[in-house]
Design a protein around this nucleic acid. Structure first.
Lengths: 127, 127, 127, 127
DNA sequence: GTGGTCTAGACCACA
DNA sequence: GTGGTCTAGACCACA
């Protein structure tokens, strides 16, 4: 259920995290559900186990999942994932909006960009 | 007129570029105006000349400045800087807006964020 | 597969780029194929890794290759290399043809030069 | 009568040489005619006398002009300039045509480029 | 191991 | 003095 873009400049471990968070937010992964083991996921995705390990550890430190030694990794409360994502998104957005403003965009243009982002698009239907 | 943050995760040469682009957009640096020489700027900023050179060459490849051996580096057309900044800004924003949408933000919330970004704030008065 | 001329006035990093572009155009290097690592190529060619890095980064900025940290450098679309080379070649040629015309060459002489360039020659058979 | 492009990547001393050669070929500068003094020309063009000096010395070594100590620089035989220019143009052209061929241009396309170079154009009328 | 950044310092052509 | 190239070597994040 995870798709990695090997050509992207975004590190693989971050791509993984974002997608797992989205799966939690969408309810596909539920609270206390066990995540695939590091080795299995690495094999399925065809990448180095170290990369999975790094993603899991980072998510644990962010409170999105928890690990039980000898048993595996599990989804923490979805509300943790949600509040984290909202907080991070909002911070990034505010920074970018200021940037866009300094780049000469008008409020009107930015409102249009928001509306455009909420237009249903073909790609979205495929998800 | 350039201030570098040695602690930042943003590379020094990119910090330089962003600030020079902003100086051009603000009209402080004008078309065909000469930029500080590689060595002088390096001395003033307390960093290695190679780092300045990298920033200047990158900006030249992006069409923001042009360099002439034996003479120096000069500001290219400000419109080049402007279109570049707008393009990059918009691309980053569109990506983030999609992200925010997936994070559960409503169009209404994002419109509010846009309006908030255009509210005059104390920091802006200091510029 | 790359041969550098240390005596040449053409910088080493540009010699490298030209030869890699030619390898892509000849189909020796295919789309998404991995290029030698910065360190390995530097060792093989007997030059400093920084010089390889400069060549690779320049090619990436020109859209000929793409790089992913931790994974390596890869050939982008060959059509990118082709259009780039055609564009550069044509620009240089137009400039030189004007020059030749001002030097007193007739259209007839230049047409002959074109035909001569397309005559099979011994060196070409050796390729 | 000499126009320098300060933004060009071609060194000023070479720009000068090319234009003086063209003036000789066009008959504007005649055999044994005296060239402007280094200092005067530097003043008129607004550039460093060293640059003029370098151009004059280079042209002398190429047999296009000759200098008489204490008297100045003089145009050598126009035929010297012409044969030099033809020789250099032809060598550069042959190299570029091969390059263009390897870049995938057909003989037909190159013949068209030649014809295009001989079309009268507005800019040429202004010379 | 992979690329990316940065320092230090040398040498070159050009102005 | 100006930019441009190159070597040597350190340190970092990522896989």
């Amino acid at each position: 259920m995870i798709k990695l873009d090997l050509q992207s400049k975004t590190p693989l471990y971050l791509q993984m995290e974002q997608q797992i968070i989205d799966l939690i937010l969408m309810g596909v992964l539920k609270e206390n559900e066990q995540l695939p083991s590091v080795r299995n996921l690495a094999r399925d995705l065809g990448i180095n186990p170290n990369t999975i390990q790094k993603a899991y550890q980072d998510m644990e430190s962010r409170g999105i999942i928890y690990s039980v030694v000898g048993r595996g990794n599990f989804v923490a409360s979805p509300s943790a994932a949600e509040s984290l994502k909202r907080r991070e998104s909002m911070a990034a957005l505010e920074k970018l909006l200021q940037d866009a403003r300094h780049a000469g965009f008008s409020a009107q243009e930015l409102h249009q960009a928001v509306d455009a982002a909420f237009q249903p698009r073909k790609e979205d239907d495929l998800l």
